[in-house]
Amino acid sequence: MIEVENLTKKYGNARGINDVTFTVEKGEILGFLGPNGAGKTTTMRIITCFMPATSGKARVAGFDVFEDSLEVRKRIGYLPESVPLYTDMQVPVYLEFVGGLKGVDRREIKSRVGQVMDDCGLNGVAKKFIGELSKGYRQRVGLAQALINDPEVLILDEPTIGLDPKQIIEIRSLIKGLGGRRTVILSTHILPEVSMTCQRVIIINEGRLVAVDTPQNLTAQLQRSQQFIVRIGGPEKEVLSEVGKINTVSRVAVKESGADGINSYLVEFKKDSDGGKDIAPVIVRKNWALYEMRPIGMSLEDIFIKLVTEEKIH
């Protein structure tokens, strides 16, 4: 649905983005991850035909963003990061205006506006001017204007920024509900958002693609080994030696020593071993008490920081 090839954008001598290539399939939700100034907004602005690339190509639904800009723009719903709206218009009037420009049929426009206002929870502010709305509601109006013509492609630049936790959950589930029918590109620097909503992640840093994969694969790839936190009530020395003897375990260490001999241990298993199952029998055999046992997966934060810092070292 979206194809980006060797996209480069220079601002004077400074690099906006450098040689970025990726594709997004129809119905996919793609997370665009990167620190501030990494080039997320630049890439999005090129795909939405707002600014041209210095070199490289970008196509949406087979149309080139430079050659067939109008065709591309017909198929895109865009929410820029700053959510720029006309503050002197009332919410439904604004949405009707945008719907008209985006080619919604005149007879359908009223019902369409009603529909997106329902979806985005805007019915409570139907009489207000956009300038009077809070940040969270403006964000919703921004999302509503992107959705008004039911576009095939949605490009959302940090859609949950500035919302309260309840709104964030609502917006996320709304976006998640959009996948399947629509192709969504979503930029953010909030990592759990990506693992929650996206099927695939692109990590970009200093204008360069660092990784493209599913959140799960990225986690698996970068994890050299599996780690568990295990809280066991038993004599420390014995626990360390007994658990260390298990042949799938590569390392045991006391993470936190607690009162009454109940310690938290960090147990590391060898890669690709399903080690978690071997530890409980030992504890049972020794008649120790098991208080807690949980795997610690590598979070996207860790991956992100790892990739971004690895980049720097190279």
Binding site: K74, Y86, L101
Partner: peptide, 14 residues
């Protein structure tokens, strides 16, 4: 200044 031009120019309008 307000950035609304970014949306206006990404609508399918000549």
């Amino acid at each position: 200044k307000s950035g609304t031009i970014e949306l206006l120019l990404t609508y399918p309008v000549k």
